[in-house]
């Protein structure tokens, strides 16, 4: 029982004292970060601040030199990417990573099947590998949520960049993650598309209750979408707190505009 209490008390994601350097260049230095259940958290900073490095350390693509990452109180620092995914970390990619030669529905069905990874050899043989009614239903619901129902059987090569981003998020959500990592979801989109994506994401987040950690260049998007955010510069955490506070801070101005001489 005690173990469970500890689990409940722990935040969803806790990164403690992460450090990482590449060939002598310090990319991250003693960075700690926390995301609670159902929270929307932003991660901002100028180019080269270490956002992506931090992100990849959390996701498992990079192994940090120091520090730990834990999910719901369990240390996941040593787990490979796919096992972290099974424990409930979903993600999207800055450069779209979809499966070529597959339809939109294929993307959702495969994610759903990995999530319900039961032994399904004979089921596949019996059904020739076609999706079961419940799989169809779950993927239909997800498609509807993202307004992709019309595109269900389209090969992803025919989709626009914005639609591809939605498919990425939908695929990640099909694995029922507790934490969704969004890597620059607005990159390559214009203002209107980015706004549409943000409102869809907001909708989905409200319904699914998933926590989101957002790395984003578009400060406006972060300001509207997140409640709390972390400001990173040169591998160090400059400031953390409610988004509005961080946005208005001197550190923020300094990080993005450089420190200006104070007029006397």
């Amino acid at each position: 029982m005690r173990g469970r209490d500890v689990t409940l008390a722990a935040p969803l994601l806790a990164a403690e004292g992460l450090g990482k350097s590449f060939a002598g260049i310090v990319a991250l230095e003693n960075v700690s970060l926390r995301v609670d259940y159902g929270e929307r958290v932003g991660l901002i900073g100028p180019n080269g601040a270490g956002k992506t490095t931090l992100f990849n350390c959390i996701h498992g693509m990079l192994v940090p030199d120091s520090g730990t990452v834990s999910l719901a109180g369990h240390d996941i620092s040593k787990l490979p990417v796919h096992l972290r995914a099974r424990r409930g970390i979903g993600r999207t990619f800055q450069r779209i990573e979809l499966f070529p030669d597959s339809t939109v529905r294929d993307h959702l069905v495969i994610a759903d099947r990995v999530r319900h990874g039961e032994k399904r050899f004979w089921l596949d043989v019996r059904r020739h590998g076609t999706p079961r009614p419940d799989e169809m239903q779950r993927s239909d619901e997800m498609l509807a949520l993202f307004g992709l129902s019309e595109l269900a059987d389209e090969p992803i090569e025919r989709l626009s960049l914005g639609q591809c981003r939605l498919v990425e998020v939908a695929r990640a959500l099909m694995t029922k993650p507790r934490l969704l990592l969004l890597d620059e979801p607005s990159s390559g989109l214009d203002r209107a598309e980015a706004a549409a994506l943000a409102s869809t994401l907001f909708d989905v987040q409200q319904r699914q209750g998933v926590a989101i950690l957002l790395v984003e260049h578009d400060i406006e998007l972060v300001a509207r979408f997140t409640t709390r955010c972390y400001l990173l510069e040169a591998g160090r955490l400059l400031r953390a707190g409610p988004t509005a506070e961080v946005m208005a801070s001197d550190e923020m101005r300094a990080a993005y505009l450089g420190s200006l001489p104070v007029p006397t």
């Binding site: 996701h59 693509m61 096992l83 979903g90 499966f99 695929r171």
Partner: peptide
């Protein structure tokens, strides 16, 4: 085959 990293990110080893 399509994207190893994306496959990993949904839990495929």
């Amino acid at each position: 085959r399509g994207s190893e990293i994306a496959a990993q990110s949904i839990g495929i080893s």
